[in-house]
């Protein structure tokens, strides 16, 4: 039985890699620009190691030698024949991938745990004008009733949504002082769009999936890519209500610069990782701003449902022959 669990971990990594590469290739071949479509297809890739691999690993005929030697497109067992210093190359690959997976998971888990322990001070009630602005934007996004707005007594710029059962928009005094009227409106619409898409719940579910697949670096990267797509989707939905993509781009830049690339608790792995991560965050903000400046939100594909169904069918079939 322990052999089966090792098989499960190995195949989870290989299946996620194959599924992610196929989905990324399809995103390019099908020229999918809509963040919603991209998000759903990446979810399809993430579901493979979570749901498909456990089923496939425990199919008895897939573990037989004849299936490995005659029917598979790729079998890790064949790579086990290649050895480096007495250790199979495939085992080394799996070990390296699992270490990277764990590192990527901890990189995001650590700031989350540290951030939750930091005291933010008791939230304050907004003014009537601020509440009315949020209510108007929420109506535009189909949110009934409008989620409450709370002000954080902080000088640091912070603007985010939180909560699953009682979702709330939280804005710091620092953010209100930093943004002009149009930028504030655009940023609030962006956060409301997250709530309209139930993104706080989705992000917790994604974190749960990442915890289950903590050893799988591809799943960690896919989950991060999905988080980025949900930001783009909120950019599009929010700016369609606020009516000003330029203001949202400007707000993003201002908040990013004021936070110095994103305030995060120090990592336990040393400062050497801080700079690359800061650069990655800056690059992401830059790309989002370019998207906002480049023109209107891309339309969903008219055959998006068909494409999702095809991926949901074709990728597991391909993975049957990857052991």
């Amino acid at each position: 039985m322990p052999g089966r669990w090792a098989d499960l971990a190995e195949q989870s990594i290989v299946h996620a890699l194959v599924a992610a590469l196929v989905v990324e290739a399809l995103l390019r071949v099908w020229r999918i620009e809509s963040p919603r479509d991209r998000l759903i297809l990446r979810l399809m890739a993430l579901l493979q190691p979570l749901l498909v691999t456990p089923v496939l690993v425990f199919l008895p005929w897939r573990s037989e030698d004849e299936f490995h030697d005659s029917w598979t497109l790729f079998s890790g067992r064949h790579w086990e024949e290649l050895r480096l210093l007495g250790v199979s190359l495939f085992d080394l690959f799996v070990l390296a991938m699992a270490s990277i997976g764990l590192l990527l998971f901890l990189l995001d888990l650590w700031p989350l745990l540290r951030g939750r322990r930091r005291a933010r001070g008791a939230p304050e009630l907004p003014t009537a004008a601020q509440e009315a602005e949020v209510a108007e934007l929420a109506r535009g996004l189909g949110l009934h009733p409008a989620p409450p707005l709370r002000l954080l007594p902080l000088d640091a710029p912070a603007l985010f949504c939180a909560g699953i059962r009682r979702p709330t928009i939280l804005v710091s005094h620092g953010a209100l002082a930093l943004l002009d009227g149009a930028e504030r409106r655009a940023a609030l619409a962006h956060e409301l769009a997250h709530l309209a898409g139930r993104d706080p719940l989705v992000s917790w579910l994604l974190m749960g999936v990442r915890a289950l697949l903590f050893f799988n670096p591809v799943a960690q990267v896919l989950a991060r890519a999905m988080a980025r797509e949900s930001e783009r989707r909120a950019d599009d939905s929010g700016s369609s209500v606020s009516g000003d993509r330029l203001a949202l781009a400007s707000a993003l830049l201002r908040l990013h610069r004021a936070s110095g690339g994103g305030p995060r608790p120090p990592l336990p792995f040393g400062a050497s990782l801080e700079e690359p991560l800061r650069r990655a965050r800056s690059r992401d903000v830059e790309l989002r701003c370019r998207r906002l400046l480049d023109g209107p939100a891309p339309a969903r594909s008219p055959v998006a449902g068909l494409r999702v169904a095809l991926v949901a069918l074709a990728v597991p079939i391909l993975l049957v022959f990857v052991t």
Binding site: S237, P298, P302, V303, A314
Partner: peptide, 24 residues
């Protein structure tokens, strides 16, 4: 009124062709 991303346009035969050819 709900203002989401632009609605999907009606599909054309070329969309189906690109979908299946791309997948293959």
């Amino acid at each position: 009124m709900s203002a989401q991303a632009p609605a999907a346009p009606a599909w054309r035969p070329s969309d189906l062709w690109r979908t299946f050819a791309g997948l293959i």
